[in-house]
């Protein structure tokens, strides 16, 4: 974020309140009111998360007596220890990583190649094909779910990593994004290379691909997040315990009706499943934000 802002800020930052292109010069009462309101809204945003974290740190039995127990000690990490004792949980994390990672890499490869092809090269039926791919954007995953499930049954791909990864590769969003991006790169670049008799692939690989890094980052992050959070397809395709992704696995440990004392435990599961991705987000925040911004405006 900061790098972007400095590129466009009217003047180098001279004081903290400066540099806002939205026309705020200095701090006025109006700015303060807006800031106050935004902070209030942020607190409202955070409240549910904090509530859940607080619940997860409480003894289940204490919560049964009164919810007000949330607001005072003692707190405990016992619920988290119980999750870790579920032997499969690390396997599920690994599965989620393999699926989300595989899908991300695969999407980047396929989308970059296709994006380059559609944007920079000419071949018969190119425009027709591109329109068909664009129409694919309107196909909701659920509309092809049933047929896809039958197809994968026939190919014996359920309960395998390819089975969990492949459906995501057919989403046209990446191609759409990369095509846009490749089109925006000045044509002179590869024309010069073409005159040197460089092959099409070499131009793609050496000249253009490096220029698309911001778009790669955006697409990669969206793909990874989407795959990590997917629920429907893993639920019906990865049906063996060893092939559960974290989302499905965590859901499966929730007990049948008999459970009456597990509120804290349930909440710790929510935190546990959400935490890795939140930490990842905080860690890569700068890149994510830059990437989202970078690709969006084009």
């Amino acid at each position: 974020m900061s790098s972007m802002t400095s590129a466009h800020a009217p003047t180098p930052a001279s004081d903290v309140g400066r540099g806002a292109p939205s026309g705020m010069v200095g701090r006025t009462t109006g700015d303060r009111i807006i800031l106050g309101l935004t902070i209030a809204l942020a607190i409202v945003m955070m409240a549910p998360l904090l509530w859940v974290v607080a619940l997860s740190l409480k003894d289940n039995k204490e919560l049964m007596v009164s919810m007000n127990a949330v607001f005072h000690a003692p707190y405990t990490v016992q619920n988290y220890i119980n999750i870790l004792a579920t032997s499969s949980v690390f396997r599920w994390i690994l599965n989620s990583l393999v699926v989300a990672g595989g899908l991300t890499v695969g999407t980047l490869v396929l989308s970059s190649l296709a994006g380059y092809g559609f944007a920079r090269l000419n071949f018969p039926f190119r425009n027709v094909l591109f329109v068909i791919v664009l129409m694919g954007l309107a196909v909701p995953e659920q509309a092809v779910l049933i047929a896809r499930h039958q197809l994968f049954s026939w190919l014996k791909l359920h309960n395998t990593y390819p089975g969990l990864i492949l459906p995501g590769l057919s989403a046209p969003f990446g191609v759409f994004l990369m095509t846009q991006y490749f089109r925006a790169i000045p044509k002179e670049l590869d024309e010069a290379a073409l005159l040197d008799n460089a092959s099409r692939f070499k131009i793609f690989w050496k000249v253009l691909l490096p220029l698309t890094l911001p778009a790669q980052a955006t697409l990669g992050i969206f793909t990874f997040l989407g795959a990590w959070n997917d629920y429907l397809w893993p639920l019906i395709s990865g049906t063996k315990k060893e092939m559960y992704t974290l989302t499905v696995g965590i859901a499966s440990t929730q007990t049948n009706f008999a459970q009456s004392e597990g509120l804290g435990f349930l909440m710790s599961q929510a935190v546990f499943a959400g935490a890795p991705i939140l930490i990842l987000y905080l860690f890569f925040q700068k890149y994510i934000v830059t990437a989202v911004s970078g690709a969006a405006v084009r």
């Binding site: 396929l110 989308s111 296709a114 092809g117 559609f118 492949l166 590769l169 099409r200």
Partner: peptide, 11 residues
């Protein structure tokens, strides 16, 4: 030239 879009189109 269509070779570039072929892998995606297959999937």
């Amino acid at each position: 030239n269509a070779l570039f879009v072929l892998p995606f189109l297959v999937v």
